[in-house]
Each structure stands twice: as C-alpha cells, then as structure tokens.
Design a binder for these strands. Structure first.
Lengths: 225, 225
DNA sequence: CCCAGTTCTTAACCTCGCTTTAACGCCTCA
DNA sequence: TGAGGCGTTAAAGCGAGGTTAAGAACTGGG
C-alpha cells in the first residue's frame, strides 16, 4: 500500500533530504514550506501522516495542528521540534499531536515512526454518535434513527461541536470560535442557528435536545422523560 | 472471488502451517521451497499476492523480488523477514516490496495483510465503475451503459476523483488540487468544468448526478428517484 | 508555419438559499 | 417593574453556485 505523507517544514535543506529519503522508500511525500500552504494541502489531500515542524513562517506548527483537529481531521501528526522542553511536548499533545521527534533526528528513526503512524490509522472513527443521532463526518450528513437531517455548513459545525461535547455545556464563545474563528459577527447570529438546529432535531422527533445554560452556552443531552 | 497466493519459504514447518491456515480461509496457497522454484511458479501462474521469505536457498528473497519487478510484474509482494533491522526493510522497499512482516508473526496478521494486498490490486484496476458508469483509466474514456461519454483532460480528472470517492463529498480544494496542483486558476473554472461534466452525464441519461454540498464541494451519487 | 478544431479560462449575469440583521415577545430576577 | 438574556420570526443582503458566451491557448494535420 503506497503511503502518502505531508511534510510541513521551512528549512528547505532538511525538507528535501526528508522528501528524497522517503521517496526512495516508496513513500510519497508532499512538501509545504509554511503553515498556510500546509493547511491547504491537508484540506485537499488525504494523507496517512502529517510531519509538522513546530517553528513555521505564517502559521506555527501548534496552530496548524489545532486547526487540523478543529476541522475534525484525525490524521496522525508527527511533530518535529528543535527544542526538547517538556512544555513543548505537552503543548503538542494538547493540540492533538500523536508523536514527536526532536531535531536533529536520525532519518531512519523518522521512517520507522512514519510507518508506525500510517498503520495506526485504520482504526479511526468517521462517525459521531449520541444516542440515535449519527453524524457522518466524511459524508457530511446527519441522521436520527435513519431519518436524514438537513444541515447547512454552520449548523453542521455547531452540531459536531455539541456532539463531541455531548452532555457537557459548551460556552457561547467556544461555539462562535468553531463556526467563525476570529472574525465573529456582532449580532445574534448564533442563536438563530441554534434555533435552526433545534427545529431540525424536532422535525425528526429526536430524543435529544439542545438545552440552554443561561449566561454560559448550550448543552446537547438526552431529553429527560 | 478466490484468492491465489504463492508462499516462497524454505522452512517446511512454517510453510505448511501457513498453507494450511490460508486454505482454511479458502485462500489457495502454492508453495515453493527456494528462490528459483519460486520464480518459475510466478512466471507460470497469476498470483494475487506473493509471500517471500528473505533468506532462501539458491536465490535470496531480495533478488527474487527484483527479478519479478524487472519482468514488469506488479503483483503485490509481502516480505517475510526474521530480522527486524531497518536495513532489511529499506532494502525490501527498494527492491519493490509492498509490505513486510517480521518473524515470528501472528498468522492472523498475515491473513489481514494478504487480504489487504489482494484488494489493493483490484484497486489498481484500469477501470473504475460506479453503477452503470465506467471509466477506462488507460484508454482515458468513459461510458454509461455502453454509451460513450466524451471527456476532456480536465473533466476526466474530475470524474475520476469523484468516482473514486463516489457517495462521499469531495471538497472544492481537493478537486482543484487534483486538476491544477499548486498553480490554481483564480476564477470560476472549476464550476464551469463541473457544469460540462454534468451536461455529459445528462446527455447519456445517467442515473448518477453530481450534487452540490454548499460551502464544501461536490458528490457523485445515484439519483434518488 | 499556419489553420481549424478543440479545450480552457475568464467574465458577466442570474438565481437561490444561507446567513445576518433587526424587531418583538417572553421569562426571570433584582 | 424594568433590564437583560433568550427565543422566534420575517425580511434583507450577500455570497456561493449555475449558466452562458467570447476569446485565448493549445492541439494536430497539412
């Protein structure tokens, strides 16, 4: 099975060494020189493993990692870091890293980890379930007990976040962040979309409800009978 | 579909264990005890997968592998090696191996890989099919229920990607990446080509449609009646 | 090297529906 | 009772997607 990986690294020398070496091992290796380019390649392609430098121009490694995870992409990420500090590793794992390697590293070591991570991927889930509610992340579709639920891009993101945190209240700010990132609308958009989402859940007679945590945010939880 | 594999292994005990186990799983397994015999069986028969020991009398595994590839035979090869050294794996991939397994291995693990590799081969097939739609990759032609569909280079690539991911939405970015790589046109080229492709599908009365996932991309799926 | 046919890009325009906005009503709690 | 938080609704806006046509860029054959 041909392995497809992405290397996000601004050191051109190091990058071409890695790319060449991996290609010899018949591992196809794309390369991005900065975080922004990396993200767009990740969006466009289906990689088995992502190799991510921590210090990157335009968008640093941790942020790239966070954004990848936010878009519910769980491709294994191997962090490459020049620093050996515990703090970095901890921050890395917080951000959703699967493994890390401290520079300078043996390239053979890299190969072993890439192969190991690429194998890990087979057991990944692409469906979120809460009660009878199912969200197909890849198909971008939702259903309740078999009945399809129509979702717009925004309601999809909201439902995804609420399902990931099912039973736990999610703050208004967290929901806004998921949907709009940093440039957030200033009016009552969020409550309108929450309203749409509630209507969709009602329509299929779902046994789940989005409850309000006054002054804080919302929770998705099973209806108490 | 019956799977046909060849095991090239000089350890008779191990060989008969593997042969017996695979046959229980209704996988037909021929056996060669040395490299020369292995090669002649490979030449004579059409195997879905070749299991190749690294240390073999008369002609070692790596050489067998190289000779198979030289004769432009791309049957997947699974290398069995007693050693865990990286050097062997590297040499194996160089020689054209597709996967490896370190002895001693769990026989279930072997089964999983044999099945995976045998499937891969059909995935490399030169024809993609979705419903009655067929795409001949080598001939670069398409047809629906026998009627030819005229495709330009770009619409061909789009259809190929959509057919490979049939039923799952493909992001706009992914489609752009497939067609233009990194130097992407800045205007609405994609939607024009999608439009052309849709017209072609209509023309042959295909029971498939390219649906829009607003804010995301497109899906190829069967028309709901 | 030119021509004809094909293919690709661009731009303009239109439509549709998602998103935002704003207005209003309800409820709760000081 | 009035202020603030939330729900609901309807309408406006705005951007994404669809369609079309024109011309630029390629192509292969003469």
């Amino acid at each position: 099975m041909s392995i497809n990986v992405l290397l996000v690294e601004d050191d051109i020398d190091l990058a071409s060494t890695v790319v060449d070496y991996l290609e010899i091992e018949s591992i196809n290796c794309d390369h991005a020189a900065n975080g922004i380019q990396g993200l767009s390649l990740i969006e466009a392609n289906d990689y088995q493993v992502i190799l991510l430098d921590l210090n990157l121009p335009k968008l640093d490694g941790l942020s790239v990692c966070q954004k990848v995870r936010e878009s519910s992409n769980d491709t294994p990420i191997l962090m490459l870091t020049a620093r050996d500090s515990l703090g970095d590793k901890v921050a890395g794992f917080d951000a959703g890293t699967d493994d890390y390697l401290v520079k300078p590293f043996e390239i053979e070591e890299l190969l072993v980890r890439v192969i190991a991570l690429s194998k890990r991927r087979s057991g990944q889930a692409s469906t979120l379930n809460v009660g009878e509610l199912a969200l197909e992340l890849k198909a971008r579709s939702a259903s309740y007990a078999g009945d399809a639920i129509k979702l717009t891009p925004i309601t999809f993101k909201l439902l995804e976040k609420l399902m990931r945190e099912a039973g736990k209240p999610v703050s208004r700010a967290a929901l806004m962040q998921v949907v709009w990132g940093d440039e957030q609308p200033d009016s009552n958009s969020l409550k309108v979309h929450i309203h749409h989402l509630r209507k969709q859940l009602e329509k299929v007679g779902a046994d789940l409800a989005i409850e309000t945590e006054t002054g804080f945010g919302f929770v998705l939880r099973e209806k108490s009978a």
